[in-house]
Amino acid sequence: MSAFTLSAAEWDVLRLSVKVALGATLLILPLGVFMGYLLARREFRGRTIVEILITLPLVMPPVATGLILLLLLGRESIVGGWLERAFGIRFVFNTKGAVVAAAVVSFPLLVKAAQLAFSGVDPRLEGAARTLGAGRVRTFFAVSLPLAWPGVAAGLVLAFARCLGEFGATIVFAGNVAGRTRILPLAMYNAYQSPDGMGEATRLLALSVLIASAALVAGTWLDRRGKKKLGRMDAS
């Protein structure tokens, strides 16, 4: 096999990784954007605790995050046990687990980016929308979100890229099962650990670099396009 051709197994790894990262990004999208908006706009009781809880996965070792997830959602836990009995949902050794692990780890990146983006939107524009008859929901979707969108989109790209890099939390919480939870970094580690896997590890590495670069390019493009569409916001 040539150094530049992917094997069927490597293609599977790629597909799974993108699937997990996309799934996790879509999963955190609504709540992440909402939390970002909430933190940018409102003072509420327990705000500090919420901020700490959201930021924690960003600063904790991912292995620790994985352990916490295992304690909260593992088969032996109350919540995890109930989810399995009532709905048959299982996270451990399951792609769903990989998605949850990636989601939790990338969540703070989206929230922080969204919070920053919403802070940059003049709240008086929202007031103006209200006096024009728009309720809270319409004001959010017609004014706040479109104006914050470049920043939110950048946050989504960042979160997606972080999902692709997930290792620690996934291996602890969801395990390292080929075809189910073995995403790129796990596959890379596996290949590197096996006696003659250096070639495969290198190909996966190249793939990793490629996807990450593509994500960053997409992010920059979204940001530029968004800013262009808004024109010079400060001039209005």
Binding site: D122, R124, L125, G127, A128, A129, T131, V143, P146, L147, K229, L230, G231, M233, S236
Partner: peptide, 11 residues
């Protein structure tokens, strides 16, 4: 309400 700085929606 017509605000002093108009507050048109820039987008």
């Amino acid at each position: 309400f017509v605000f002093q700085d108009h507050l048109l929606f820039p987008h």
